[in-house]
Structures are given as C-alpha cells and as structure tokens.
Simulated assay, not measured.
Amino acid sequence: MSNLVNTERNGLRRRANYSTFPSLSSWMSDILGSDINTLMTSNFNTGMTLPATNIKETDDAYMVEVAIPGMKKEDFDIEIDQNILTISNEQEFEDSEEKESYTRREFGYSSFKRSFTLPETADDEKISANYENGILAIEIPKREEAKQKPARRIDIK
C-alpha cells in the first residue's frame, strides 16, 4: 500500500508520481517553506512582548495609550524620527544567592518596540507623554489648520 496521494499546493493540483521520489529541491522547499519558522520560534522565548495599545482621535489630537504596568516613566524611550513615533523599553535583571553548598543565579532580559507613522495632520513639535497607573498616554496634537472647525452660517446679501 502506498502513502503517496494527490495533493494540492498553492492552488494547483499535483498528481502523485509513484515511480520516483520527490526531487531534493522540492523536498527542501516543502520542509523549509512549511513550519520551520514556527518550529524554531515556538521553543525559544525571545523576551519580546508587545503591550496592548489603543489609538483614538479627537477633534484636536490623537491619543496613544499603551498598557505597560509595573514600570517607571524612566524605563521608556519615546522618539520621533522622520515622522515615525517609536516607543521602546529594554530591561535586564539579575538575581543571585550564594550559600555554602550552592549558588543560585537567575537573569533575564525583556524588551519591546512599537512604531507608529504619524499622520500629516500631527504637530510633532507639541507631543506630550504621561505615565500613570500602568498606562503610558501620549498626546499628539493636530496642526491648527487640520483641526475641524465648527459649522458656521453664511448670510446671503
């Protein structure tokens, strides 16, 4: 009994060839193209997590709220470069304990980096940030000419 069957790949139906084995290149493509990235990254902790982020727009500004509890405002790096707002954090920690018969040493590293392209209506000279109760709040004011003006009535002469 053969385990070779007709398969579908990239929307094309391939007919099984019972007389030959798959070529080395197709075999490598099947292996490397399938789950190699998942296999390699699923068993390793990269130390990188992305915090939850809310973005909202008001008449006068854009608000970015990032949930990052348990840190201090000094732990964050906020930069603007070529109209891209980047929020990042890196932390290293080490804990050790030495006793007569053993030494315990634990260490770790964590980081994140989030980048956002600012809209053309943003006034990047007036951006402000505040960190309180685990929420990093960044206010990005709109340029004066981009703010929505209230409707007004025009009298007919």
Rank of each mutant, 00 (worst) to 15 (best):
S34G: 13
T58P: 03
S101I: 04
S115H: 01
L39T: 07
K72E: 14
R143P: 01
S111D: 08
D77W: 01
Y109I: 00
T53A: 14
I138L: 02
M28L: 15
E145D: 15
M1E: 09
F93T: 02
D95N: 14
L85N: 02
N133G: 06
S25P: 07
R15W: 07
R105H: 15
D155P: 00
S23W: 08
S115Y: 06
T46H: 08
G108L: 01
E98F: 04
E8K: 13
D35K: 12
P150Q: 11
A122H: 07
K72R: 06
Y109A: 07
I31V: 11
D30M: 11
T46N: 12
R13I: 12
R104K: 11
K72P: 00
K99P: 00
M28T: 10
L85Y: 06
K73R: 15
I84T: 14
K147G: 04
L32C: 10
Q91I: 13
L12C: 07
S101L: 07
T7N: 11
Y62R: 01
I140M: 09
M63S: 08
S26P: 00
F76S: 02
I55K: 10
D77A: 04
S26M: 13
F116S: 05
D124T: 08
L32I: 11
Y62N: 01
A52V: 09
D124F: 06
R15T: 12
N6M: 03
A52S: 12
D123Y: 03
D59I: 14
S128N: 07
V5E: 14
A61C: 05
E144A: 09
L136Y: 03
M40A: 12
Y18A: 09
G33H: 15
L24K: 12
L32F: 14
K56W: 00
I31D: 04
R143G: 05
K149P: 03
N6P: 00
K142F: 02
P22R: 14
K99F: 03
P150L: 09
K113F: 01
S128V: 10
N3F: 06
T86F: 05
I78N: 05
E120R: 06
I68F: 04
M48E: 13
T7H: 11
E139A: 08
I55N: 04
E125L: 08
N45A: 05
S96H: 08
T7G: 03
E144D: 13
I80V: 14
T38P: 03
S2Y: 08
A129M: 01
G134E: 06
E97P: 04
F93S: 12
A146H: 06
S29E: 15
S23R: 13
A146P: 06
Y109Q: 11
D81K: 08
E92P: 01
A67D: 13
A151E: 13
T121C: 12
A67W: 07
N37I: 09
D30Y: 12
I31G: 01
